[in-house]
Every structure is written in structure tokens, then in C-alpha cells.
Design a protein around this nucleic acid. Structure first.
Length: 201
DNA sequence: TGGCCGATATGCT
DNA sequence: GCATATCGGCCAA
């Protein structure tokens, strides 16, 4: 795994870039189709392997934190929404759905390029530990609260997968409300998905 | 202004 | 698998 950052062909550059319409679609659709996309921020590139959808359900910040989740108000879409979880860990979200409140939490990436920079930011060595979990992912990419409210497509390059992706749906992680909704989406068989691993992979 | 809760991460058993 | 550190956001008083 150690040579991937030098030798990997930039398969991503030949892929289609996501446009504004991609994030304007219904939140569940966006959350599912973000899995398998590659995300570039500066020199750091990774494949999205795990997301979660939040709309106007009881666990959503649209309901829980209407004051700070401004990016979720007013049917905006395509904006970055960053918040601190448990005071310390930043979580990176993209707002979605041109017609309703919604956001997708990015929970895990498979690191592809820029691993040394990620290691420096994360203070861990193992590639598998760099972007596994929302707080880890945000730290590895150098996300700050200042990015909240920015346009997703200006802050990142988002590239669509070249081949169909096998996605597993399961309940969302770490929430106390609306736990029954299977709105966590992960790449089948990926070792880079966070804990707890969805059953069946 | 204090207290409670949480879309987490980590380390130890 | 489980405990717990840690602190921002929110609301009650």
C-alpha cells in the first residue's frame, strides 16, 4: 500500500466531474451516489467509501441545531457545512436537495494521494487510520470551521466513479434519535469503512 | 450562567 | 466490546 501515492495513475482525471445538479438531487440519492466518488482537496485525494444522509428527521441538525446549521436552512444545496462533534472533532457535510433541507455527512475515505500530508495532520502512520471516521477524515483533509458555508464545488473537486458501485445501506452511527432509518451508505467490502462495520461486508 | 447532551475517537479489557 | 475524555451548542432559570 505504501507506493500508491506515487505510482497511482490519475484515473480520476479522466472521470466526469460532478456538477451543481449532482448535489441538488434528493438527499438519499446524493448520499448513495457519493459513495465511490473521488474527492480532491488540495493535494489530498480519496475515494468516498461511507456517507450518511440527514434531512428533516429527528437526528438532523436542521431539527437539532437550527441556530448553527444555517447552511441547512432555506433549501440551500451544494454548500459545505462543518460542525464540531463532542467539542473537538470536526465533521464535514455537503448540503443537498434544491427543494428540501438535507445534508450528507462524509464518514470515511480510502486515501489515494497526499498520504504524507494526511499523516502529518493526523499524527498516525497507518493508511487505514487516516480517514476512517468523520473526525479523522476532516482532520486528514485539513478542514476547518472557516470552510463552512463555502461552495462545495469551489472548495473540492468531486469526480464520479467510472464503474457501477456496490453500496450497502445500514442504520446511521452514533445517534440517539431516528435510529431505525437505514441512511448510512458504505462501499461493499471496503476496509476503509468506519466502525461499527455494517453487517454483510 | 450552569447543566445536560451529543452525527466521536481512542485505549484498554 | 466498553469506558471515558472533552467542549460546543442549546435551553432553563
Amino acid at each position: 500500500m505504501g507506493t500508491s501515492e506515487m505510482s497511482s495513475p490519475r484515473a480520476a482525471t479522466s472521470s466526469r466531474l460532478a456538477d451543481a445538479d449532482f448535489l441538488a438531487r434528493p438527499t438519499l440519492e446524493v448520499a448513495r451516489s457519493l459513495v465511490g466518488c473521488t474527492l480532491l482537496r488540495g493535494r489530498c485525494l480519496g475515494r468516498i467509501v461511507e456517507t450518511e444522509a440527514y434531512t428533516d428527521d429527528a437526528a438532523s441538525h436542521y431539527v437539532m441545531r437550527p441556530r448553527t446549521a444555517r447552511a441547512l436552512i432555506g433549501s440551500t444545496h451544494g454548500l459545505v457545512y462543518v460542525f464540531a462533534s463532542y467539542g473537538v472533532h470536526l465533521c464535514l457535510n455537503f448540503t443537498t436537495d434544491a427543494l428540501a433541507p438535507g445534508a450528507v455527512l462524509l464518514r470515511a475515505l480510502e486515501p489515494l494521494e497526499g498520504l504524507e500530508l494526511m499523516r502529518r495532520r493526523r499524527h498516525v502512520e497507518q493508511a487505514a487510520d487516516l480517514c476512517r471516521g468523520p473526525g479523522c477524515l476532516a482532520q486528514a483533509l485539513g478542514i476547518t470551521r472557516a470552510l463552512s458555508g463555502a461552495s462545495v464545488l469551489s472548495a473540492f473537486s468531486l469526480m464520479l466513479p467510472e464503474a457501477p458501485v456496490d453500496v450497502i445501506a445500514s442504520p446511521r452511527v452514533g445517534i440517539t434519535r431516528a435510529r431505525d432509518l437505514p441512511w448510512r451508505f458504505s462501499l461493499a467490502g471496503s476496509r476503509h469503512v468506519s466502525r461499527p462495520r455494517p453487517s454483510g461486508s
